[in-house]
Design a protein around this nucleic acid. Structure first.
Length: 354
DNA sequence: GATACGTGGCT
DNA sequence: TAGCCAAGTAT
């Protein structure tokens, strides 16, 4: 007996589904892959302009594999989750070197590429190759948690396994490309997190949560922890012609691999900053000048940022190294820079007071 | 199994 | 407004 959910979703998709997103044109594995990575934990409207620019600059896997990593990070600047960008290029190089420049077409081979997990691999198989494969993204989780009244937070493996099992069961043999898009579109357009439109849902007759009156309670949300507060100083070290010293952050951790301002923790005192700058950065400066600080909230903690201006004395020998780079104060950096830092550099007086 | 990882929109 | 959440994966 055919799965009525898939049939109903496909019929609805033909009428209402989204078919004109940028990555729907010319669905090569490369284009689908880049879109899927960008769309991880990121909303469609945020991704669209980044995707267009990225495809202009890196039209195929070879262009991405051979590009400087700073180019890739610059195009990712502002999107967040920057490990995605670094992994994207690592995987592009692997596709060139280990797969002769052609994307693999098996779940296992795709998952072996860094940054591609179970759901993204399945999305590439279904969207680019038309191979039957099952995705489970945030939209599908919500649809299935409601349709089958699956209790518990989907982050728990037991709940996740139940959702995967439901997802596998509904995946049809034919039209997997459209079905995959259909169930995501339903989650994005009808079975939304808030104010779902159950009256117009194509699968409302079989929906357990609707029958039980618990649609609004599913899926259950993650138990929240208190967010820690962290403090840091960012050093705006300027030379006499208005260049700022920027520092490449370590490859892991927050803003990994991006360029930011030299950072000190607030355990040191203001007076110590010139000496620390001399020792750590090899430059001579004086007159620490505290600027208005601001708070930046991440998913996991609040960061209190205290910018301090330091004026360089004499000439500096340091420039354009792997770790340190002078950048014109007046223009946005042509490197990968975190959004708050970009704002700090381009709107120096704008950060809100704490 | 739990945690880290960004940013912007929404209420 | 402060918290919640979004086309997840790596460690």
């Amino acid at each position: 007996m055919p799965d009525s959910v898939a049939g109903s979703l496909l019929a609805w998709y033909d009428q209402h589904g989204r078919k004109n997103l940028p990555w729907h044109e010319n669905r090569t594995p490369y284009r689908v892959w880049v879109s899927e990575i960008m769309l991880q934990q990121t909303q469609v409207n945020t991704v669209i302009p980044y995707y267009e620019a990225f495809m202009q600059r890196f039209p195929d896997v070879e262009a991405l594999a051979s590009a400087p990593v700073d180019d890739v990070l610059q195009h990712w600047s502002g999107l967040g989750y920057y490990a995605r960008a670094r992994n994207l290029q690592k995987a592009a190089i692997a596709v060139m070197e280990e797969h002769g420049g052609e994307f693999p077409d098996s779940q296992a081979a795709l998952e072996a590429l860094t940054g591609i997990g179970r759901s993204t691999a399945a999305a590439i198989l279904a969207q680019a190759h038309g191979i039957r494969a099952t995705i489970l993204d945030g939209n599908v989780k919500r649809v299935l948690a409601r349709y089958h009244a699956v209790r518990g937070w989907p982050g728990r493996p037991k709940v996740m396994n139940a959702l995967w099992a439901h997802a596998e069961k509904h995946t049809p043999d034919a039209r997997v490309r459209d079905y995959t898009q259909a169930i995501m579109d339903l989650g994005a357009m009808v079975c939304t997190r808030r104010r779902p439109d159950c009256a117009d849902c194509p699968i409302n007759d079989g929906c357990e949560a609707l029958a039980q009156g618990i649609v609004a309670q599913l899926p259950e949300s993650k138990p929240r922890k208190i967010m820690p507060e962290k403090e840091t100083w960012l050093l705006l070290i300027e030379d006499d012609i208005g260049n700022l010293l920027m520092e490449r952050r370590p490859p892991s951790g927050i803003w990994g691999g991006l360029w930011s301002l030299p950072e000190m923790d607030t355990a040191v005192t203001l007076d110590e900053l010139p000496e620390i700058a001399s020792r750590e950065l090899g430059i001579q400066c004086e007159d620490p000048e505290p600027l208005a600080g601001f708070r930046h909230t991440f998913s996991h903690y609040h960061l209190h940022i205290h910018p301090v201006r330091l004026r360089l004395t004499g000439q500096s020998a340091i420039a354009d190294s792997e770790r340190l780079h002078w950048h014109p104060r007046s223009t946005a950096p042509s490197l990968g820079v975190p959004s708050p830092i970009r704002k700090l550099l381009t709107e120096p007086e704008q950060p809100s007071l704490v």
